[in-house]
Computed example of a mutant assay.
Amino acid sequence: MSETSSLQKALDAVSLVALRGELTVREIGEALGLPRSTAHRLVGSLVKVRLLEPHRAPDGDVYAVGKLIEELNAGQLSWRSLLQQARAPMEALRDQTGETVGLHVLYAERRVLLAQEISQHPHRWVYDNLMVPMPLHGGAAAKMLLALLPDADMERLAARDYRPNASSGALADFVGRLRDIRQSDVSVTADEVNPGVASIAVPVIRDTRYGHPLAVLSLAAPSIRLNAEAIDKLQPMMRRTAQQIAQASAASARGVAIPRRLAAGASA
């Protein structure tokens, strides 16, 4: 089966389940004219990438459309709302600190940089992956997003995105560091993804009940400026900004008027 044909079969399988509702592997295979072994492999692959998800039934597993479809469909709407509330506070934090500020979300189990406010320093850090899905293993923002997840999801995605050939011990150490980040509510890295660059990340959206994705705020700068003393000074400012964005986003989602000081990004 060619790559194009395989992709078409995968799309057909997802479309079939979306149209008919919950189906067994046998039903999917029969409808698409696939041998049983091929149908099992296809459904297994679709489950791994969250396009389908299994449900228990009295006579065996049935499969429904996965959560990824819903996330992809809702992404733009939730992003626009979140960005609307985040722009002014992010600009204010950039002006207050002089460093590049970023807003990152968890989208389709990847980190996505939604927006950044760029430092005016001649020697600065600027993200070059705006709106590009990225793995979740490296950098302060990715680790903070991972740490916000329930244990089972955190461990599963850490195993997926951490160094491919890492030993079980190295992976366990990495998960342990994520739990430390969860406990401290801040992620700090230096020279990890890009030499000479350090970053801090704190949570913005940790509760997705209002339709917004998990989100974190980052601040990135050359390591020579973002030293231990600077990090201690910057954390309270970042937390205040993150709280402003979270409160304004929640109020907007509930249809509540946003206080002028929050909408304007005034610091507490």
Rank of each mutant, 00 (worst) to 15 (best):
V43S: 07
L52C: 09
L136G: 14
A220Q: 05
E99S: 10
A230K: 15
E99R: 01
L68T: 02
Y63M: 06
S187K: 00
D128V: 02
Q243F: 12
L46A: 10
S223I: 02
A166Q: 01
G196M: 05
V132M: 05
R80E: 14
G176L: 06
L262E: 01
S5H: 13
L217Q: 06
S119H: 09
Y127A: 15
P122E: 08
D61C: 10
L16Y: 03
A263Q: 05
L214A: 12
V25N: 06
L7I: 08
R94V: 10
L113M: 12
Y107R: 00
W125L: 10
G255Q: 10
V47L: 09
L77N: 07
G21W: 13
L19R: 15
L214M: 08
P54M: 14
M154Y: 08
Y127P: 14
D191T: 04
M238K: 06
L82Q: 11
L113E: 07
L149N: 04
N165Y: 02
I258M: 08
A198V: 00
D12I: 02
L103F: 11
T24G: 15
R26C: 11
V193H: 13
R225C: 08
R206P: 01
G139Q: 03
A251R: 11
I181R: 03
V14L: 10
A263L: 13
L157T: 01
Q247F: 02
P133K: 12
S167K: 07
H104W: 04
Q96S: 11
L11S: 12
L7V: 08
L148M: 14
N194L: 14
G33H: 08
D59F: 14
A228L: 13
A13E: 11
D153P: 07
V49H: 07
A266R: 02
M90Y: 07
L214E: 04
D59Q: 09
R160D: 11
I181G: 05
A147S: 15
S78K: 01
A264K: 05
L46N: 00
A88S: 14
D180M: 06
D128F: 04
Y210D: 13
I118H: 06
I231R: 08
H121C: 10
Q244Y: 00
V202N: 03
L214P: 02
I224D: 09
E155D: 14
V105G: 09
L42H: 09
M134H: 06
S5M: 13
V197G: 08
R111E: 09
E99D: 10
V49F: 08
S252I: 01
G33F: 12
L51G: 05
A221N: 08
S168W: 03
A39L: 06
P259G: 05
V14Y: 08
L23E: 03
Q96N: 03
A242I: 05
A266Q: 12
H40Y: 06
